[in-house]
Design a binder for these strands. Sequence first.
DNA 1: CCTTGTCGTATTGTCTGACATTATGATAAA
DNA 2: TTTATCATAATGTCAGACAATACGACAAGG
Lengths: 242, 242
Amino acid sequence: MPDRIRQQTVVGQVMEKIRDLIATGKYKSGDKIPTEQELADRFGIGRSSVREAIKIFNYLGVLESRTARGTFVCDRNNISSEALTWSILLGDDELFELIEFRGALELWCFMALARQIGDNPDTHKKLMKKLENNIEKMRKAEKAEDRSSLVRLDYNFHKMILEEVGNSIVNSLYETLKSFLYEEIKKAHLSVDAFPRQADNHLRLLSAIKSGNSETAAGAIKHHFRETADFVRETMQREKEL
Amino acid sequence: MPDRIRQQTVVGQVMEKIRDLIATGKYKSGDKIPTEQELADRFGIGRSSVREAIKIFNYLGVLESRTARGTFVCDRNNISSEALTWSILLGDDELFELIEFRGALELWCFMALARQIGDNPDTHKKLMKKLENNIEKMRKAEKAEDRSSLVRLDYNFHKMILEEVGNSIVNSLYETLKSFLYEEIKKAHLSVDAFPRQADNHLRLLSAIKSGNSETAAGAIKHHFRETADFVRETMQREKEL
DNA sequence: CCTTGTCGTATTGTCTGACATTATGATAAA
DNA sequence: TTTATCATAATGTCAGACAATACGACAAGG
């Protein structure tokens, strides 16, 4: 089946024009492009068509419109991984696939981090300190049976590691996953009597990282996620029984 | 420096509204959303504001507006690659992050697959056959110096594995990445004289999977991706020298 | 000299109403 | 049964208006 023929719309043509202006270097990072009215006049079209094109570029992080000032070409572009995010949003994926996927992201981050530490044990000292601190708080929360804090601490633990490795795409996706999983996991924690011993579990993860051996780290994170998955599975089972 | 305060614009709010409508499942893939005028009335705003929001979603491949028919929710494999294309114009950093991210997805799939085979060596026999077949074709393509085929075979090799493991999120994301990376890698292959010995490389990957040991698989895939990254880096270097 | 307040201006943000274009289905004609 | 015509509804586009606002100039006051 051939792709649907999409006749070139005015907005599409404007986008190409603007794209060319940037691609050819006519306007560079930080430059101010002509006003909407000016572009509309130059292209012989309505201002709203120009606006729609500019709006899209705004969303893509290519242009930035500032009220009363004008529209500028962005510099270091943080191209939106929104497109990737939407990909997740649009699917009616199973909870387990989300957890699996989250595991894939973390697996990679853990291994990368362990590897870096293996190469040079002096790096990431600060992070280690913060992680230890976090685990300490977990212990307190466990004692106080403060489950809400526990979930937050759990999330923070993983988030800190993700950020340290610093792939912005991975981070952005993780953030998206969070909004899906966070509530789910929180609910799970609140609904059951027992919950995993988080502090100990995370301590194991930390040791694995410190070992500087990516295989050890991989083993630990895989184990961790298998436990999480089991826990969620169990919780859902109980919910069904009600 | 604190983030710039960006006051919520009407269009931004509309986008959130629409996003919610989809996220909450009110409108699913293939559904027709209300007309622009209807949405404008419902939200108590002008039609042009609704249009701008819808336009952006159109570009991202989330919605599809058809003249005289209405606006529909896309299914997720239409997520626009064009949006990602823009990042080519931008820094090289993003490119490496994408490659890294792709590596993260594959790492997980390889390990999962190897693990499954380790647990039960009789599974996935059919896939193994197909992979061997693919490598054979690579050999021929290498002899014929048919680089275009080589890129396609490379992609297929990885795609087959991803599909076998069968996490739909991972697959969907990989598909999105493909449209973006495919061209980039193809360009790289075409522009340099030498290229890696793909058949041998992939044979190593296959053996690692067959071993049924996920650590072995992890090592192999990491090595593979380090090579790929180096190759791209090198290519870009050469391009800069021109 | 420095701060503060006021005002004009330029530009984006938004609304409205109009008309153009076109895909679809109903109806009529052959 | 096929073809032609037409009405309808929706998006596509345009023009004009006004609102909101950031910024610079300039004046007032200390």
